[in-house]
Design a protein around this nucleic acid. Structure first.
Length: 776
DNA sequence: AACAACATTAATGTT
DNA sequence: TAATGTTGTT
């Protein structure tokens, strides 16, 4: 037996060695899925399959890269290299580059990311002169995305009475026209958005049988990772390609389908057996990652979902500790607890900071944790968020580079035609666009033949010269591109366009960081080029670099070496594991998200998300929630997430820091359910809310007990005036009006909370720093 | 054209 | 609140 097959359990072995025909591998969390996938590919190659004939589709670029490395270790570099492995988007972008001419696309088409696409949509809506309040660009964009993912082209849309009617009813009757104009604009620009990469691939394979045959023949063995998160468009591509040999292996876990907002269709995996009646199914049910307690708790929650395969995920690891649940007063409080707990646990158990992760539902929760960690001098790293390549200054430079590669990209052109400012103003720009539109040519074509168009454009000589200068500059860059490396061209662009100088003129900290970001872009480019040069079939060209950054959001590599706590959204954490996980913000309307509380499907997805989060933990998990949270610019009350009540008591334990108990008692809230009757937790949701509201709005009987923990200074953000505030003071608030301070809490002057009973608005928890109270 | 003041919106998740 | 877009002023 081959070495790599040793140590596989029975079902893993089956999944790895069943090479022919359709196969579905249901891989529970932590069941060694990646190992199975890599070993399976290695096994294919060892058994004489040419790597050239294998297509492996992953969910992220990172996953592809890691897997490739692992495969290379088994079958050698050269074998691994000729594999086709990558995300749907990157693999089919590559195919479209060589086959796009069938559809009228140039091979150098630009890939628009979400933001680029949104900008185009904004302009389309503006040009149509329709009510921008009704047609929110983001909403329109997600509509269009849904259509594309379901292969509803513009034509199909207008031929579909149901859709037309639905949009009319939704007061969105212009959607179709916006869709049409958007598609036309992208095509004119020689650009595809993310959804196009899949949609156009489908079009290519459907309309041109010879192309389909070519790739069917090429991809004799197809593997799809994270199959539960594929959308309809992806499903059809896979189906078409696999229909000849039917050597299709899909791997996934229906319990971890968390991307329906992006069009993922869980029925792709649930119905796999219908698509391939002969399919063989293997379930990987043993979890090697987590303690029994964690696995059981996760199972308890996911069991509430109706739509799923029956599985029995189990662990034979140690039983492990119960999951500790912390209740806190505010988001800041929660963050302080988590930071403190990480510090203590690290010391107590001799752990590294990199053993810890803080997982949250929304990116906006990051800030509080960053603050708390920084105060305690705990090193941390935030993953995701605004990616480096989304920053304005970086996008500006990239726009130049894009324009060099694809002149037709009018988006890029207009972005930089007057940036840095070179006297080509709004009026001139508008005239250019209108003219180009009405003559049905790209803006670049107008600039290209400026002398010819000049009489009709009616620009004065000054403007003409400026336009000429700009375009000659771009042309000069293009010439450079033929002889120089991408890096030196970019350097030249940055300097000669005046971009660097423009940025350097701004000596504020933000300005300086912008210059650094541009430098960083250059560095990453240099790194990319070096990496590509080392590859036998590498491609260090500028177009390839641009494609790479367009399709990779996961640019931040997880530095395992670094001693840092990881902060990320649950979505981002999929596929990762950490010894200790803090799952935070477990509140109704946050997790589950307020957007998801309406339909059962949405709620089930939130539950799967919870399942994913909890199963990231190897040894210990901590839950936390706050009873009030600062969001949308004000403090809102919150109640614990329903998911907490879905876990049996035997797996969790409620703990609260002493200081908080004091607060609760002092405040006259008789909510001691956490301390004295843990067995009543099942009903705490209803009980607690009522208790707080009822007790909180009562006039406080014994004001003396409410002696302030601290006398706080009102910290006015402007710093202009600050005054002392104490319990009993009458205060005025911008929005809530006049009220009386009934309680103060907190020792850190930056973070003092006040309970104020307002005359009309009732009781509010306020953080002094933000509340801008005036003493009266 | 550049800047400042003002107004609005946002914050489920991402290839 | 913070980030972004819009309008107004010079």
């Amino acid at each position: 037996m081959e070495d790599y097959l040793k140590g596989l359990n029975e079902s893993q072995f089956e999944a790895v060695t069943t090479l022919q025909g359709p196969l579905m591998v249901l891989a529970g969390a932590g069941s060694g899925k990646t190992r199975v996938l890599t070993m399976r590919i290695a096994h294919l190659i060892t058994n004489g399959v040419d790597p050239f004939n294998i297509l492996a589709l992953t969910f992220t670029n990172k996953a592809a890269k890691e897997m490739k490395e692992r495969i290379a270790k088994v079958v050698g570099q050269s074998n691994a290299r000729s594999l086709w492995m990558g995300t749907f988007h990157s693999v089919f972008a590559r195919i479209l580059r060589s086959e796009g001419h069938y559809l009228g696309y140039p091979s150098n088409f630009t890939i628009y990311d979400q933001q680029d696409a949104l900008n185009v949509i904004r302009k389309v809506i503006k040009d149509m002169n329709i009510d921008a309040d009704l047609y929110k660009p983001k909403k329109v964009q997600s509509r269009i995305s849904t259509y594309k993912n379901n292969l509803i082209t513009v034509k199909a849309y207008f031929n579909n009475p149901e859709l037309l009617e639905a949009d009319e009813k939704a007061n969105m009757k212009f959607i179709g026209q916006i869709y049409q104009k958007y598609v036309e604009q992208c095509f004119k620009n020689g650009a595809m958005d993310f959804d196009d990469l899949l949609l156009k691939t489908n079009e290519l394979l459907t309309r041109f049988p010879e192309v389909l045959a070519k790739y069917q023949d090429r991809f004799r063995y197809i593997l799809v990772d994270e199959y539960q998160d594929t959308n309809h468009s992806q499903y059809l591509i896979v189906k078409a390609l696999a229909s000849k040999f039917e050597n299709i292996c899909v791997v996934g876990d229906d319990a971890q389908s968390i991307y329906s907002f992006r069009g993922a269709n869980i029925y792709n995996i649930l119905n796999f057996k219908k698509d391939y009646p002969d399919a063989f199914t293997v379930s990987l049910e043993q979890n090697y990652r987590s303690t029994q307690n964690i696995v059981n708790a996760a199972n308890a929650v996911i069991a509430k979902n109706l739509q799923q395969f029956k599985k029995n995920v189990f662990s034979e690891n140690e039983e492990g500790e119960k999951i500790k649940v912390y209740r806190s007063l505010s988001d800041a409080d929660e963050a302080n607890f988590v930071a403190g707990n990480i510090w203590e646990t690290r010391n107590r158990e001799q752990r590294k900071y990199s053993d810890f992760a803080i997982l949250y539902r929304t990116n906006s929760q990051t800030r509080a944790f960053e603050d708390a960690l920084r105060r305690k001098n705990i090193p941390y790293k935030v993953y995701g968020g605004l990616s480096f390549y989304q920053r304005k200054e970086v996008k500006d430079l990239i726009a130049y580079l894009r324009l060099l590669v694809n002149e037709n990209d009018s988006e890029a052109l207009m972005r930089i035609i007057n940036y840095p400012t070179r006297g080509i103003g709004e009026t001139t720009q508008n005239k250019l666009i209108v003219f180009a539109d009405s003559h049905n040519v790209a803006v670049s074509k107008v600039l290209e033949s400026l002398p010819m168009y000049a009489p009709q454009l009616g620009f004065n000589n000054g403007v003409l010269n400026k336009l000429n200068d700009f375009w000659s500059m771009i042309k000069a860059f293009q010439v450079l591109l033929k002889t120089e490396t991408a890096y030196s061209v970019a350097m030249e662009v940055a300097k000669r366009s005046g971009l660097i100088k423009f940025l350097k003129d701004d000596q504020t900290p933000e300005g300086i960081s912008r210059v650094e970001n541009v430098q960083e872009l250059m560095n990453s480019m240099q790194g990319f080029i070096e990496e590509q040069m080392q590859l036998e079939d590498g491609d260090p060209s500028l177009p390839n670099f641009l494609e790479n950054i367009a399709l990779s959001a996961d640019t931040q590599n997880k530095d395992n070496e670094e001693e840092m706590v990881s902060l990320m959204t649950i979505h981002l954490s999929k596929g990762l594991e950490f010894p200790v996980v803090h799952l935070v913000g477990l509140e109704e309307n946050l997790f589950p998200s307020f957007m998801s509380s309406t339909t059962r499907e949405d709620l089930e997805e939130e539950r799967r998300l919870f399942y994913v989060a909890l199963t990231r933990a190897e040894k210990q998990a901590f839950f936390s929630y706050a009873i009030s949270r600062f969001q949308w610019g004000k403090i809102t009350d919150a109640e614990p997430s329903r998911f907490l009540s879905e876990i049996d008591d035997e797996f969790i334990e409620f703990v609260n820091p002493a200081i908080e108990k004091r607060f609760i008692n002092n405040a006259g809230i008789t909510s001691n359910i956490f301390d004295e009757h843990p067995s009543e937790m099942k009903s705490f949701k209803r009980v607690e809310k009522k208790t707080i509201e009822k007790e909180g709005s009562k006039p406080i009987a014994e004001p003396r007990k409410l002696k302030p923990v601290a006398t706080a200074k009102i910290i006015n953000p402007s710093g202009a005036s600050s005054q002392d505030i104490e319990v009993g003071d009458k205060v005025r608030h911008d929005r809530f009006g006049i009220g009386e301070v009934t309680f103060l809490d907190g020792t850190d002057p930056q973070n003092i909370k006040a309970k104020v009973v307002f005359m009309h608005e009732g009781e509010k928890n306020l953080i002094l720093k933000y509340a801008k109270l005036t003493k009266i």
